[in-house]
Simulated assay, not measured.
Amino acid sequence: MISDPQCSTLPHRLNGTNLYLIGMMGSGKTTTGQELAAALGYRFMDTDRLIEQVAGQSVSEIFAQAGEATFRQLETQVLAEVSCYHHLVVATGGGIILEPMNWSYLHHGLVIWLKVSIPNLVNRLAGDTTRPLLAHAALAEKLTTLAQARNEFYAQADLTLTIADNLRPRQVSQAILTALPKILRDDI
């Protein structure tokens, strides 16, 4: 649960508002999201896992067989459904911010950008063969290109948290819990 006394009223102040974690693949949205949900007494959801359940295929298989456009349609469908619920911490796919419609769903809650440096992402993703956008690419170059195309969208988040290379998910979660009261309005 929440260890910082200043944050002890946070679940009450959030009043069930969903928290959406955005950022590049490998930024720690899933592991941090699980920690954050546990600390708040919220449920945790990962949009990529939900898409896989809906499609009956892995994200890689969807990209390979149906293409990125089909994946993005499923992503919007899943996000639309998830946004109807409350008391959720939601880890989103790295590209969810590219579709303007998705922002209408993300703004049903608070959007938190986990900002991780490219060198740190390269260290985290080296050897990962499950990410379709990284297949057959020079990792650092591909991540740099993706970040350049996405950062202006990520920057629309309600809260940006720059993640130091040595932070563990629990520490990132605690940093979010500490930062959230500073951005909450009293009417949430």
Rank of each mutant, 00 (worst) to 15 (best):
I2K: 09
S3N: 08
P5E: 10
Q6P: 01
Q6D: 11
S8K: 09
T9Y: 01
T9R: 07
P11V: 00
H12L: 01
R13Y: 03
L14R: 01
L14V: 06
G16R: 02
N18W: 02
I22M: 07
G23V: 02
M25P: 02
G26C: 02
S27N: 03
S27L: 03
T30E: 08
T32C: 00
Q34W: 01
Q34S: 11
E35H: 12
L36H: 11
L36K: 10
L36S: 08
A37E: 12
G41T: 08
Y42R: 11
Y42H: 10
R43W: 05
F44N: 12
M45P: 00
M45T: 14
M45G: 06
T47M: 05
T47N: 05
T47I: 10
D48T: 10
R49M: 10
I51N: 08
E52T: 07
Q53C: 04
V59R: 06
I62N: 09
F63R: 07
A66Q: 15
A66P: 00
G67H: 09
E68Q: 09
F71I: 03
E75F: 02
E75A: 08
Q77H: 13
L79W: 06
A80T: 14
E81A: 15
A91D: 06
G93M: 04
G95L: 03
G95I: 04
E99T: 15
M101Y: 01
M101N: 14
N102E: 14
N102D: 14
N102I: 11
W103F: 14
S104N: 15
Y105M: 14
Y105V: 13
G109H: 12
L110F: 12
L114D: 10
K115E: 15
V116N: 04
S117I: 14
L121A: 07
N123D: 14
N123W: 13
G127E: 06
D128K: 12
R131M: 06
P132I: 03
P132Q: 09
L133Q: 10
L134F: 04
H136P: 00
A138S: 12
L139H: 02
A140C: 06
A140M: 03
K142N: 07
K142A: 12
T145W: 08
T145G: 02
L146E: 00
A147D: 09
A147F: 08
E152I: 08
E152M: 11
Y154K: 13
Q156L: 13
T160A: 11
L161D: 07
T162P: 00
T162L: 04
I163H: 05
I163G: 00
N166V: 12
N166E: 15
L167V: 10
R170H: 14
Q171E: 15
S173V: 05
A175K: 11
A175N: 09
A179D: 10
A179L: 12
A179P: 04
L180I: 00
P181K: 13
P181N: 11
R185H: 12
D187V: 06
